[in-house]
């Protein structure tokens, strides 16, 4: 009868506007950036003073950063840009020199900073030390597998890292400098 009218069509032309509004909202609030940085594994805390173990001087690569952000490596001042190469040379000791590490598993890098060292300098030094290791890992991975270290699978990576372990030991910072 008269009831059988046609349903009026819903006007959908404003749908695009609504969607646009939502889109702009999400566009504005989105942050796609992922956090990036240098990953570190801290040593567990123990209340007892650490065992003093006798290490041969040739196996220790001491790096110190003072409150003026100056670098002292094995008692000698050094430029930051040389640190990466020297670190890698110390660990791998390609020429079997008497004053560098006996073998990579025995090499220890000892990093010490002051409470007044700027964070930027500290991180730059840490970055160079890690870069030294990364260079060695990449070279070793290339030699053994013909791949970059990042492209190795986890088992191979573990094996490689067992041969060249990352040992950066950090001492309690000194407090000569002024904290700002």
């Amino acid at each position: 009868m008269g009831r059988e009218r046609q349903q009026p069509e819903i006007n959908a032309s404003s749908m695009a506007d609504i969607a646009f509004l939502l889109l702009i909202f999400f566009l504005v609030t989105t942050t796609i950036d992922v956090d990036k940085g240098i990953r570190v594994l801290l040593p567990p805390w123990s209340d007892e003073p650490p065992e003093t173990q006798k290490l041969k001087t040739r196996n220790v690569f001491s790096v110190m950063v003072n409150a003026n952000d100056e670098l002292l490596v094995r008692g000698e001042p050094m430029e930051l840009k040389d640190l990466r190469e020297k670190t890698a040379e110390f660990i791998s000791n390609p020429e079997k020199r008497e004053d560098l590490a006996e073998k990579p598993t025995k090499a220890i890098i000892s990093l010490k900073n002051d409470r007044g060292t700027s964070y930027e300098a500290y991180l730059a030094v840490y970055n160079e030390l890690k870069a030294g290791y990364n260079d060695l890992w990449n070279a070793e991975a290339d030699k053994r597998f013909g791949l970059k270290y990042e492209d190795l699978d986890i088992a191979d990576r573990k094996k490689l890292r067992a041969d060249i372990p990352l040992v950066i030991s950090e001492a309690e910072p000194t407090s000569f400098g002024e904290e700002k």
Binding site: D114, G116, Y119, E120, E179, K180
Partner: peptide
């Protein structure tokens, strides 16, 4: 970057 290491330590 300008913070000193004291508080970070």
């Amino acid at each position: 970057r300008d913070v000193t290491m004291g508080i970070v330590s």
